[in-house]
Every structure is written in C-alpha cells, then in structure tokens.
C-alpha cells in the first residue's frame, strides 16, 4: 500500500494554489489534512499526478467572529474547531459534530475545508453545516463566490467547486440564546462512518414555542439533506413528544437510503426516524435545561 508517484507543489498563497489548479486542472488534487486523500492514495484508488499541498498557506487557518457569524478558515484543523472556546460558546453544535470525526490524531490533521470538499454523504461536518446553513466561500480564477449547502454539495463526494477553485472559508451563524441543539449519530464503532447522523436546532421563543426547527440528516442520501416537512411540522408549535415522534416519521420519508454491508436501506431509513426523534428530544432537553 504505497502511493503512486506525483508532482508536489507547496504554494504559499491562495492565488498560487489557484494558479496551479488552473494549470493542472483535474490532474491535481489539493492536499490539506490528507486524512481522506492519503488513504485513497495508499490504496492506489486515487493516483493524482499533481499534489498541491496548501498547508503552507497559513492565513487560511483561523476562527474569528464577524457580527453574528463565525468565520473559519478552510485550513483550520478540526481539532482546533472542536476545542475552540469561541466555537463551544457561540456554536456548540459545531464543536460537538466535529468531535465525532475519526480520532484525535485524525482531527489534529484533518481540516474543516478538506472535510467539506470531500463531501462524504456520512460526514458529520457536512451534515452540521447543512443544518446551520453555513456558507462556503470559494476562490477561483475569476474571483470568489459564496455557496450555501444546497448549492455546494452536489452528490456523493462531489461539490460544485470548479477544477480550478479552492474553498477558503466557511461562514457559520452563531446560535442565539434559547436554542436547543443536538448532534447524534449511529455508527458501528465509535468514530466509524455514520450510518445515520442527525443535527437538530430548535430556535425557541418565550413561552416554549418553537419558532423554527432545523433537522439535517447525513448518511441517508447522496448529500446531507434537510428534513423540511418535519421542520415545518415543528415550527410555531409547542413541542410535544407526539410531535417529535411524528417529525421522526416525516424525516425518514425523505431518506433515499442506499444499502451497504453495515446497514440495509430499510435499516438506515428507520434509523433516520429513530435518530431524528432522539436528536429532537436531546435538543429540547438542552433548551429546557433538562440535561
């Protein structure tokens, strides 16, 4: 299991990286954390001819606040996001979701941008970004553009990035007070790819009414998906367990689950129901302080 040969570049700026991408297009792969790419290369499933190592572009590594948003540089390590007091305070669901990715050594290397661009349908990060309505800022030869989750994630392992574009930043809204949240997942072993991952947000009003609910599911479709019918069911309601049960059932309806060795399509779909219910209960508990 040794990778095949490649040409190796270490740009120091985004512009240089984009220039290299323009030159080599789809012969080139960006090397960020490498925690998904290098195994693929070691198996020789992937044999990029050119590797553009962006780890030298240090100014893509940051977590900062702008208004009500967190801005996270694409090269920020997952472990830094997980441990960031700012993230834990302003957007705890993000820190929680990231903590499910692999193990510490994987998160030490793995980057936010790398994980999003890899667009694995089971990815915790893509699921939580979908739930949070995060925005991806990409830079290409003509300049930059910003994409929401639905524009960004196209299908299995595929984003709308052009061959010469690079993801540079993710913008994530912070959570207002009085928000219930949860990130729950089912996996064979702790840290394995999720069979189902569910991110939920409950924006509450005074009086215990749910103003808006968001439910994102990972692992049950080619991209992370939002359970819009279930969200609508909860919006404007006082959330009861009966409502949660119903929401789970609604959410499972939209799952286009595919079978693999670990989980049949039927199982996956039903687990979407179960974990949406569990996630909503946990989120509700949090906002009620009932933990």
């Amino acid at each position: 299991m040794k990778p095949s040969a490649f040409e190796y570049f270490t740009p120091n700026t985004v512009e240089e990286a984009v220039g290299l991408l323009e030159k080599y297009e789809d012969e080139a792969k960006i090397l960020a954390g490498g925690q998904s790419l290098v195994p693929i290369m070691n198996f020789r499933l992937g044999r990029p001819e050119v590797l553009i190592d962006i780890n030298g572009i240090r100014d893509l590594d940051y977590i900062k606040e702008e208004g009500d948003d967190l801005l996270i540089g694409a090269l920020t390590r997952q472990r830094d996001v997980e441990l960031s007091p700012r993230v834990q305070e302003k957007c705890p669901i993000l820190a929680e979701a990231v903590s499910f990715i692999g193990h510490v050594p994987i998160r030490n290397r793995g980057t936010i941008g790398g994980s999003l661009v890899h667009a694995d349908p089971s990815s915790e990060l893509t699921t939580v970004i979908c739930c949070l309505d995060g925005e991806m800022k990409v830079v290409g030869p003509p300049g930059d553009r910003t994409l929401g989750p639905e524009e960004f994630f196209l299908t299995y392992l595929t984003t709308s990035l052009e061959p010469s574009e690079i993801l540079v930043e993710v913008r994530i809204p912070t959570l207002p007070q009085n928000t219930g949240w949860s990130f729950v997942e089912l996996s064979r072993r702790v840290s394995d790819f999720a069979i189902v991952g569910v991110a939920t947000l409950l924006f509450m009003e005074d009086g215990g009414i749910c103003k808006e609910a968001r439910i994102a599911l990972g692992g049950v479709a080619p991209t992370p998906i939002r359970a819009e019918e279930a969200e609508e069911l909860l919006a404007g309601q006082k959330i009861t367990d009966a409502l949660i049960v119903k929401a789970g059932e609604e959410a499972a309806e939209i799952a286009e689950a595919e079978p693999d060795y670990h989980a049949s399509a039927e199982y996956r779909k039903d687990m979407a129901r179960v974990f949406v219910q569990r996630g909503l209960r946990e989120a509700l508990n949090k906002v009620r302080g009932g933990e």
């Binding site: 090397l31 490498g34 290098v38 195994p39 070691n42 472990r79 050594p105 030490n108």
Partner: peptide, 13 residues
C-alpha cells in the same frame, strides 16, 4: 507536538 498518523503524511510535509 500533536499526534498524527505517520502513514497518512508524506515525508515532504
């Protein structure tokens, strides 16, 4: 200073 899988990194890095 941080743990990493040395099988998932290239020596050049």
């Amino acid at each position: 200073g941080r743990t990493a899988r040395s099988c998932l990194m290239f020596a050049v890095q």
